[in-house]
Design a protein around this nucleic acid. Sequence first.
DNA 1: TGAAGGGTTGACGCAGCGTCAGGGTCAAGC
DNA 2: GCTTGACCCTGACGCTGCGTCAACCCTTCA
Lengths: 259, 259
Amino acid sequence: MLTIGQLAAYAGVTVRAVRHYHQVGLLPEPERDASGYRRYGATAVVSLIRIRTLANAGVPLSQIGDLLEADASDFAEAVQRIDSHLRDEIERLETSRKQIAELTAGDSLALPLEVAAYLDRLRDIGASKRMVEAERDGWILVAARWPERVIEWMPAKVAELDNPQVVRLYRILSEIFDGDADDDPRMAEAADIMAALAEQAHAAGEMNLGEEAHDDLPHDLIDALAVESDPRVERLLELMRERGWSGWNRMERLVEPPD
Amino acid sequence: MLTIGQLAAYAGVTVRAVRHYHQVGLLPEPERDASGYRRYGATAVVSLIRIRTLANAGVPLSQIGDLLEADASDFAEAVQRIDSHLRDEIERLETSRKQIAELTAGDSLALPLEVAAYLDRLRDIGASKRMVEAERDGWILVAARWPERVIEWMPAKVAELDNPQVVRLYRILSEIFDGDADDDPRMAEAADIMAALAEQAHAAGEMNLGEEAHDDLPHDLIDALAVESDPRVERLLELMRERGWSGWNRMERLVEPPD
DNA sequence: TGAAGGGTTGACGCAGCGTCAGGGTCAAGC
DNA sequence: GCTTGACCCTGACGCTGCGTCAACCCTTCA
């Protein structure tokens, strides 16, 4: 007769595991000796080894009991199920590995590489750290909603950065929001540039985003995000409204200008 | 301002998950509105998306907080750790798949194929179901202790089955233990055959198992197993003792026979 | 006789939420 | 003004397979 420790050692498991199998009814509780110790016979050893064999193969404990009593065809079927479940699990993990492989650096986190490249360009033309982070967060919102489309939009955005007006705009905005003046006079200049750019885009008919325009939520969120990150943005929006434009990222004409 | 449901929908997660992130401190609790509802700004949306991006990549929640604030080198290092952890997990599951692939049928469960083949042969020569199962359980005990050696021993065991005496022995034993007579007269015949076989083996010097002989536990367990599976085995052991042999599976001479 | 090395039950911990239970709130239609 | 359905709230258990205390008892050996 074996003690629980000897039984466990023979089967290569821990004592705790054996007790657990008792608890879940996988292994019957044996008789106790005079001092209350569990005493095991050879049958228990065999049962335990068979249980461990299945458990090592990845079979959930809850199924092992049935499996040990199943006939050949039920057994084969169950094995099939378990195997395909394992395959799914492996695939899930493989996907995870691919995903983290793409998380090489900070910006590409939650963003496609194209957008990360755009943000790098922004940094290059002199946008401040805060500015780039704000842009990044905005694009995260966009990418979450239109993960496919956002990639298509990037070439045009990158091209915009060749426009000296745009470069000047980002530099001014960077300086304004990196400073701590509550009412920087350059804010008016920024608004002027933005209005001019909007005017050009409108004239060129580039202001239509397609069906995405119908979903206001991302745009509203981006506006809100900008204000949350710096309340002075509110002032900038006001200046834009004075110039006949609403919004921050998806500008709309408030009033048609006189001819 | 978004409700928790809108926030969750935007990021593609469940409401419960968001609340969980609050609980573990990953996402800060937002302000409440007049009726106690949580109200989220755009910043929360961005945070949540970034959290999910890492979580989807298999990063444990407990590390996501640090990771979102880490610099590029710490980030890369952490990503390395997580990736190698994922690799280990995948390998574990692959191993499981291999294992269950080998569990095609009942007997090979916890036994190498060689032993399963031996059991099939046993069935072929007319051993009863009970008999084969008893043998199987015995070999499970042996295979658990000497997984390598057991394979080497099988050819000799299979060869034994060509011996008509052995075949007869298994048939008699099958009949005895499939019946319900408490004192089957054929038991003496079985004992005679076993004694004769032991004598032959002893004479041929085949009774040494090598160093394995020093470990009594498996042998004792097999004897116990036999008795547990049918108490009448005890009688058989007694008959063997009368014939000068001890034990059931690893027989030893009790007394040297007179010349 | 005391210490070491077993054994006993009971209970919490882990990871990441899912899923009740038992409420309150909001918007819309009657 | 009332109902209905869709949301929101907190609190708590469940799942998987044990690991790891805690607090205590039993046996054995120096």
